[in-house]
């Protein structure tokens, strides 16, 4: 697998060197800039951008918008000490995630991973889930125990890959429905539940006590590693 390059813009040297070091230890190549003037030029070849907001010269919002315009398929994570709702909303107009300082490096790494998975499913290796091996780029799921391929219908696969793209996160039924069907979820609609039941029948070893697609009672569903 190719090394993922991350563009990181941070004017504070202590934080910058720490994050750069930490991400490098996690196997990423980091291009660290202390101001945003050259961001668009240097971003070529990067798969993801992490931006601070308060920077000398151009602020992170402006840089982010320019990057998004130049590289629409590059995920952007805002990493800011500005925590107000307005800042978050402004950031999320173009950015794909917003993390506030002080942050735990594990959380940053987790969010980077989620973003990369969401944007570049095709570059990732097959995902191992209990007894399953999921080749997301090939739309193929193999039962490791029996070696058999599991065939899903279109909607079933869409639901499952949405859950995998947000691995470890709990998704509400509204979020899943609206992402897969592209329509507003109407309360009381049982379509999703029916699909999940069929999905479990195909995926789970014991559909009565599911291990792959976990039900979080009262909240939604989750697929964990």
């Amino acid at each position: 697998m190719n090394i993922t390059t991350i563009l990181y813009i941070e004017d504070d040297h202590e934080i910058g060197s720490w994050v750069t070091k930490d991400l490098a230890e996690r196997g990423y190549e980091v291009v660290w800039l202390t101001s945003g003037e050259e961001a668009v030029d240097k971003a070529a070849g990067s798969q993801l951008a992490i931006l601070d907001v308060m920077l000398p010269g151009l602020d992170g919002f402006t840089i982010g918008q320019r990057l998004k315009k130049a590289y629409p398929s590059m995920p952007i994570l805002m990493l800011s000490a500005r925590t107000s709702i307005d800042d978050k909303l402004q950031g999320l107009q173009f950015a794909d995630d917003y993390l506030t300082k002080p942050f735990h490096p594990d959380e940053l790494a987790a969010r980077v991973e989620v973003l990369l998975r969401r944007f570049f499913a095709h570059v990732s290796e097959p995902t191992e889930l209990k007894h399953l091996l999921v080749y997301e780029n090939e739309n193929r799921i193999v039962n490791r125990l029996s070696g058999e391929e599991i065939i899903l219908t279109g909607k079933q696969f869409q639901i499952f890959s949405y859950l995998i793209r947000n691995l470890g996160q709990i998704l509400t039924k509204e979020q899943i429905y609206e992402s897969v069907w592209g329509e507003t979820y109407l309360e009381g609609d049982k379509t999703l539940m029916v699909h999940i039941r069929y999905l479990r029948e195909k995926l789970e070893q014991d559909p009565a006590s599911p291990e792959i697609i976990e039900t979080v009672r009262g909240v939604g569903y989750r697929v964990r590693k």
Partner: peptide
Amino acid sequence: RKQLIASLSHDLRTPLTVIRSHLYS
């Protein structure tokens, strides 16, 4: 006021981030 608060938030949280980074190390 929003600007002021954003700056304050930044100025207070940046040192916290630095402290945290050292704690992590």
